[in-house]
Design a protein around this nucleic acid. Structure first.
Lengths: 188, 188
DNA sequence: GTCTATATGCGGATAGAC
DNA sequence: GTCTATCCGCATATAGAC
């Protein structure tokens, strides 16, 4: 979640910054002008890269899912580490990512803000949570049967997302950190 | 969460309906016109009851917290029931309330949509979660020490709120229902 | 690829008649 | 208390010059 070093395309840089603004201010409360200011672009120039505002967010969410997959979820499938080590490493990375820049999870935010009347973002966000669940499940499977590992993974993700909610509401990390702790204790 | 029978004031009826629209469509994506249509009022008439849109939501959230407290959270403090009975009754009521009308929790939605840049709704939503936590903690205390009961209550609420998120994302109740199940198993 | 100008509509909110 | 009319600003998006 820190700014990408160069070698990234202009479009990728825009998606990166846009995702951060959307996460903090919400979809409907973020204007093209807000994004333009943050990106150092003129309003109209967004429509050169993206068809419209929805498409911009949609592509940003996909880009971010890719980032999470490479930087976080893939840890679960690394060779040469024990389940406990992979769990701790992945949850430690999860912690850094969700605490970045005042914290929060754009996937959860967008889901709760729009899911009821707009299905456009649903598939890409489902893809994010599918990958996350698969990763945790894979780790938990070294200790539990597949069905049980799946349940534990879902429970951990729910606990973490609920923790992020309370963290933002009470401006206190503990709820989120406790959830991470519990997710790693599953492997004890 | 079903419509209130009459004997409620016009203002209460408005808050009730408005909360439902806000929950489904989000704060910024709900216009005064949307609310007016749903309430059978003219746009301008809202400003007779409420100072502005923010005040309308703020009062609605307070009204709803009151409703939850009376109908759900107070179950924890009823006389003549065992902890297990109170837990099951309270969680069963929780289930009905959050599954109503396509489901979702307006407190979580508004927090994630606005908490980063608008502190106005924070106190009333904190009050909601405080009351919920106190209620669950009180039930769990018949089996756990206060500190442990507090942790279990927070964990249950996080699990439930994360479950509501996944329920809405995947259009599948199971995540939410599993969380309720786990919250009641704490008492086994 | 980048910028200026602008179309067009809807948002929240108010004034004031009845 | 209720309704009509309306102000004003900002939103998304496009046209088109350079």
């Amino acid at each position: 979640m820190t700014e990408p070093a160069k070698k990234y395309s202009k479009k990728e840089e825009i998606m990166w910054i846009a995702a951060d603004i959307f996460r903090q201010n919400g979809y409907h409360n973020t204007s093209i002008s807000d994004l333009a200011k943050a990106c150092g672009l003129h309003n109209a120039h967004f429509y050169y890269y993206f068809k419209d505002k929805e498409n911009l967010l949609e592509e940003s969410l996909g880009y971010l899912t890719n980032y999470f997959d490479k930087k976080v979820f893939q840890i679960a499938f690394q060779e040469g580490l024990s389940a406990k080590e992979k769990g701790i490493l992945m949850l430690e990375t999860t912690k850094k990512v969700f605490l970045h820049n005042q914290g929060g999870c754009i996937m959860a935010n967008i889901t709760l803000e729009t899911a009821q009347y707009n299905t456009r973002f649903i598939p890409v966000i489902q893809n994010f949570f599918n990958k996350w669940t698969e990763a945790l499940k894979h780790i938990y499977q070294e200790k539990y049967q597949p069905q049980k590992a799946q349940e534990k993974a879902e429970q951990a993700i729910q606990d973490i997302e609920g923790g992020i909610l309370l963290m933002r509401l009470y401006r206190n990390d503990k709820y989120f950190l406790n959830a991470l702790q519990r997710a790693s204790e599953v492997l004890n």
